[in-house]
């Protein structure tokens, strides 16, 4: 009887350890999938959001000053070329996230020499097909999220229309290496 109880106790302890460690480790992945589902962001589909308000329930702590654009990507079908025409004076950034929600790359308005933004994401060890002069990133996972943020401090000015044009100019293309 004591032997049996000890065994069951060990099962409880082992289960507790698995449940505790597993939940903490995989909880961010669940949040990532939840956000993907709420945004309606099927893989390789670009989504432009309006300025957040109290009806925005996709991702916690939305910033009401930001126009967000998202693209949940999957690199198994080929590398991605991300482009945008960002001839705007206000802050913008593009951030890349792993499925565990870690932000592993960010580039902002300061790092650009001209108005054309380009970024190349690839999955192979060596990618000979990357366009020349374009920043190349090899994420640790084939899936992830590209998140653009465009700062809007005044919605009544012409500058706001330019920012919206910059948002609409984002292009994310799956490229093929021939």
């Amino acid at each position: 009887m004591i032997k049996k109880l000890t065994l069951y106790g060990l099962f409880v302890l082992f289960g507790f350890f698995m449940g505790y460690k597993g939940f903490i480790h995989y909880y961010p992945q669940l949040l990532f999938l939840g956000a993907k589902y709420k945004i309606g962001g099927k893989e390789n589909t670009l989504k432009h959001a309006k300025l957040p308000d109290d009806t925005s329930r996709f991702v916690v702590k939305p910033n009401p000053d930001f126009l967000y654009s998202t693209r949940f990507y999957d690199l198994t079908n080929g590398p991605l070329l991300i482009e945008a025409d960002v001839s705007i004076d206000s802050y913008w950034s593009v951030a890349l996230y792993l499925p565990n929600t870690v932000n592993f790359y960010v580039q902002n308005s300061d790092a650009l020499n001209d108005d054309k933004f380009q970024l190349y994401l690839y999955d192979k060890e060596v990618d000979a097909c990357a366009p020349l002069g374009v920043t190349q990133i090899k994420p640790k996972a084939t899936k992830g999220l590209v998140l653009f943020r465009f700062l809007v401090t005044d919605t009544t000015t012409a500058a706001y229309q330019k920012i919206k044009q910059a948002q609409q100019s984002i292009r994310v293309t799956t490229t093929q290496c021939e």
Binding site: K4, L7, Y8, F11, V12, G15, M18, G19, G22
Partner: peptide, 26 residues
């Protein structure tokens, strides 16, 4: 019967672990 109880106690352990993990995150 032993297998049933083993799985039951494993399940109880996992459930307690998840509850505790949730508290730890908070």
């Amino acid at each position: 019967k032993n297998l049933f109880y083993s799985l039951l106690f494993l399940f109880i352990g996992i459930s307690l672990g998840i509850v505790w993990a949730n508290r730890s995150i908070q």
